[in-house]
Design a protein around this nucleic acid. Sequence first.
RNA 1: GGGUCAUUAACUCAGUUGGUUUAGAGUGUCACCUUGACAGGGUGGAAGUCACUGGUUCGAGUCCAGUAUGACCCACCA
Length: 901
Amino acid sequence: MSIAKTYSPKDFEDKWYQYWMENDFFKSTPDEREPYTIVIPPPNVTGVLHMGHMLNNTIQDVLVRRARMSGKNACWVPGTDHASIATEAKVVAMLKEKGINKKDLSRSEFLAYAYEWKDKYGGIILDQLKKLGASCDWSRTAFTMDPALSEAVIDTFIHLHKKGLIYRGVRMVNWDPKGLTAVSDEEVIRKEVNQKLYYIRYEVKDPESEDGSPQSGSHISHLKSHYLTIATTRPETIMADSAICVNPNDERYTYLHGKTVFVPLINREIPVILDEYVTMDFGTGCLKVTPAHDLNDYELGQKHHLPVIDILNDNGTLNEKAEILIGEDRFIARKKIAKLLDEAGHLEKVEDYKSQVGFSERTDAAIEPKLSMQWFCNMAEMAGPALDYVNNGDVKLIPDKFINTYRHWMENVKDWCISRQLWWGQQIPAFYAPNGAVVVAKTAEEAIEQFNLTPQTRNLQPSDLKQDEDVVDTWFSSWLWPISVFDPSVCGNPEAKGNADINYYYPTNDLVTAPEILFFWVARMIMAGHEFRGEAPFKNVYLTGIVRDKLGRKMSKSLGNSPDPLDLIEKYGADGVRVGMLLCSPAGNDIMFDESSCEQGRNFANKIWNAFRLIKGWSLTPTLSEGEGATNIVAIAWFDARFNEALVEIESNFKSYRLSEALMATYKLVWDDYCAWYLEMVKPAYQQPIDQATYEASIQFFERILKVLHPFMPFLTEELWHDEVFGKREDKDCCIVAQVPTAQQTDEKLLKEIDVVKQVVSEIRNIRNSKQISPKEALKLAVKVNSDIDYNAYSNIISKLANITTLSRTDEKIAGAATFMASRDEFFVPLEGNIDIEEEKESIKKDIEYLNGFLKAVNAKLANERFVQNAKPAIVANEQNKKADAEAKIKILEESLVALG
RNA sequence: GGGUCAUUAACUCAGUUGGUUUAGAGUGUCACCUUGACAGGGUGGAAGUCACUGGUUCGAGUCCAGUAUGACCCACCA
């Protein structure tokens, strides 16, 4: 069987994914093994794969595959999130293109369109994950609006309502005038915006004036005491003013106490109230109070019993209560009203001003504070236990720097507005009687049973009831995810035992997600987990960073700076992209993604591919010359030791979730140790055969390497695994289910001595380099041994790798030779006629100079009495070793200098 | 405004409780080599006042304080 000259991932990636699927390798059912479980952070059902998903899912897949190869029953549950606002917005836009207005549809008609949309586009992202190699148990694919999962949401609502944790109330909410829904505080993105600060004059009612009516505009500018000035960024809301507020301690305004003023343009009379809330040194010291359109004003209004005048429609246009500019959009109204005020002489000045404005995360519309009746979930009670899990380490955050942020949020948690004025989602299980009474129940029938308990609402029919139009916030379903994917029926029923799945897989092991949804999602999952299962839903939370481009900008569609992941896979292969992503992604830090790292990943794959080609191309011979045999025995023993050493390192990196370091350790093991050193040691001369024993050892090493590589590069390793050089494989004998080797004891002495051997080889190559001697020109080497290393054992290796004819021992320095030191031993490469004495001397002097500098530092330490007294004995001993070592080397070098004349 | 975290070679990052040869890796860069696994290769170099300023200590990239820059979170100054 021949093998392609270069690595060509397209030839086999799809093939192996299909093979894994057909053989149910991703599938998991409870058994006697220890489970290892991950639930996917469900991507939006309408989403397409972006670089963030790539990173996130590569990490999950590496963890799952590694667990699968470590004797665990690995289960990675995939699925999608219905993402109510985002999806509904997309469906509405799609309908609009077709000329259909959402308002003209009934709820069920709209939902039919929405499901149609979901069926068409909903699976795309999951199929894309398959390209990446994601080893999810697809038979468990879940959707947050699956009937059973939706029922879990309803049961949860009812359960929490019964506990008194869900309530209904009028609150100031963040209103999205574009999405026409309330959004939670967390869905509001604050951005700094350049605005204008308008200084507006309000006329003060003059009790001495006969009729008390406002003066004309031109008049007031001359009578300073007859008006006051307020500063606002929102002049369009003056029609909603209920009062003007000044600080009672503000002496400038004592004359206003008890007075009333007129709202400009509409001349409505409002009182001046006093409250210390107003900061005297900000703006003018006068504050307009607009309870309907500002949270703080609302609270101030409540305190002073002011009327609430709501002048805005749900879509952000002015309503008839505004009296003027009715029907205009709030932003257009702002400009127009500024003009009107100016014309009427009420606009004193306009200043540029920067301030924070909230925008809807989903629609990017400026958020409007709005009073409305909403459903809320009390968080304070549930936050306590959720905080404890993290505080006491039951749930570990990786990296742990996020604990502070988490703690801060949980200690200052606010109630959660859970109702959304949308149709796409779980409809709130609340029913209204004709008289306005409301009960929470699963069905209309159950609601009637409850209504029958009160005289006013007895004997109602289901058709008399009206269900709440709103749906719950998407997060109110996704916080159940780690439970509901296994057994939705336990949500809302803390007493339930649960099915076999949940008892086996829950709590899950690792959750891999982005820090920005630590509160939205992670914290709430912990709350729900505690509520319904009495324990947190996962043990470790691995927080990935944001994927940014080279310039540090967040990758986004709108910037167009994000490569299409599928293009990358096409170009570099899935394995190459996986390696590329992992190489530059430490946990919790943003990753500065650069396509060149995928290239590095692909090059690595190619290197492995070609190392394999080399081995595969060897022909066999049962016997070998004595020298080669000896070389190979040492090489095999050394690589075995080195492999075990690397395994220990990789294992420990995995344990501490340092995936990029685990990968880098693997990378070096393969590239440097196996390819650059081991294979070069045992490689027969061109077209020469290799002995059976070495061949078998090399193959075995390669197979062990494939196992270690598999979690990172599943496709390539599976492809090579099935090559005939490994012998005939049984049907289910696949790399994906092979077990990673466990580390054996390593031969420390051998590892150390080979390090010296490598150094010797490097030094000789260095000499060739600097003296322009071709690698093909064989050289002689002599060594004056001062250490306890037996170079006879390694002479064959050195000869082969450095093209040395003979390695002889000498007790005297050799003149006319290039020299170097390795360990404490002196090496001589005789180069008659090719030695520049002065150059040699210079080089030796340089070495001595370095060692002297080094020695000086060590001596300074040792001469310091306090160091010797205070430092740990081992440290002091080490310093003494360093000193002795440096002194010995200096002595040898000085002798060499003398010998050179 | 308050808080959290970061700042180490051109780039991306390690540096594990302060001492482990006067700071390491990968990539890139430079020089040379290369028809025999691989130019997507090999060998060997160069490259860092560990952001800055103080402090603690026998000893600081590592601990403390402050400064600068950046990122994120929180916050009602109209």
